[in-house]
Computed example of a mutant assay.
Amino acid sequence: MLRDGLFLETLQIKGPYNFDLVLDRLSMDPLNQVDIDSRSVKVPMLIENEAVIAHVQAVGTLDNPKFIIKGTEGENIVKAEKRLAEIFQWDVPLEIISEHFRKTDLAPIFEQHYGTPLVLDFDPFSCLLKCIIHQQLNLSFAHTLTERFVNTFGFEKEGVWFYPSPETVAALQVEELRALQFSGRKAEYVIGIAMEVVKGNLDFTSLRDQSNEEIYKQLIKIRGIGPWTIQNFLMFGLGRLNLFPVADIGIQNALKKLYKLDVKPTLEEIESFSKGWEPYLSYASLYLWRSIE
């Protein structure tokens, strides 16, 4: 429906779906345009090389989720809606996942954060870059560094920031990123990944149809990309449901808190704890992170 130059669509999905907790987590990133009071977020997307901004507002409840989606007339709203469904994981059966974890040690966490979906980053390329930038940094400075990067080399539309394109990043010099407080090595990694995209060696569209193992074998060859980065990309770039980054400090701290341990658990202990959490290990990861955020 068109009204005052805007495309408006009302979408009803199956509950539970806690969009308020989605917005709470999205608001941690200063680049995201989140309005907690109006229960809305502006989502930047590149649809066929067109910069599209969708305004997504929750008007329903936890058990009866409903959304109003707005976009500018003339934008590729049909493909944008499909991408929004992917980003917000509107088709994932959260009740089935919650029921699965009610029988595990994670039951209290899943009850506290009931209906929280695994929301994807808005773009696979930016997701991979963000994973690289966030490596071995505390979360606060990681967000600061990412914001500097996007504000300097990305572009703004209607108050919403878009990450720079692969072509833009590939053309950067290490010194330009060093000026933002990137380490020299991290600057090389970011530029190198963009070069792989520009050369056609890394195609995010084709990755969607590949298995986790196939993606791992391809990405691990790229300088700067290790197992932690790949696991996070599979979760937040592609929405894969069964990833558990055991080396992640946040997950280790969350397990330490959950099981009231004196020290962080060993890898053997983590593997023991996580038995029975498959095939939804990504949701175990998400809810453990939420438990300490």
Rank of each mutant, 00 (worst) to 15 (best):
E48Y: 14
A247E: 15
L94D: 10
L6A: 09
Q252Y: 09
R208C: 03
D35Y: 04
Q210S: 10
A247S: 09
K130W: 11
L261G: 06
L177T: 06
G71T: 14
T104A: 03
V174F: 05
N151R: 15
P279H: 10
K221E: 15
L241F: 13
L106P: 01
Y189V: 03
G184V: 06
K217N: 08
R223E: 07
I132Y: 01
E213W: 01
Q57C: 05
Y114A: 04
H134V: 04
P30N: 08
F67G: 01
Y163P: 00
V246F: 12
A284I: 13
S282F: 10
F7V: 11
E99I: 00
L62E: 04
P279C: 00
E86A: 10
W161E: 08
I193C: 05
T266G: 06
M195C: 10
Q57N: 07
F141W: 11
D203V: 09
S211D: 07
M1K: 09
G192I: 13
L84H: 07
T205Q: 03
I53L: 03
I68W: 03
R290Q: 14
L128H: 08
I220H: 12
Q181M: 09
F204T: 02
Q231L: 00
E48D: 14
D35K: 08
D37K: 15
F273V: 01
L137Y: 07
L281I: 11
T72F: 05
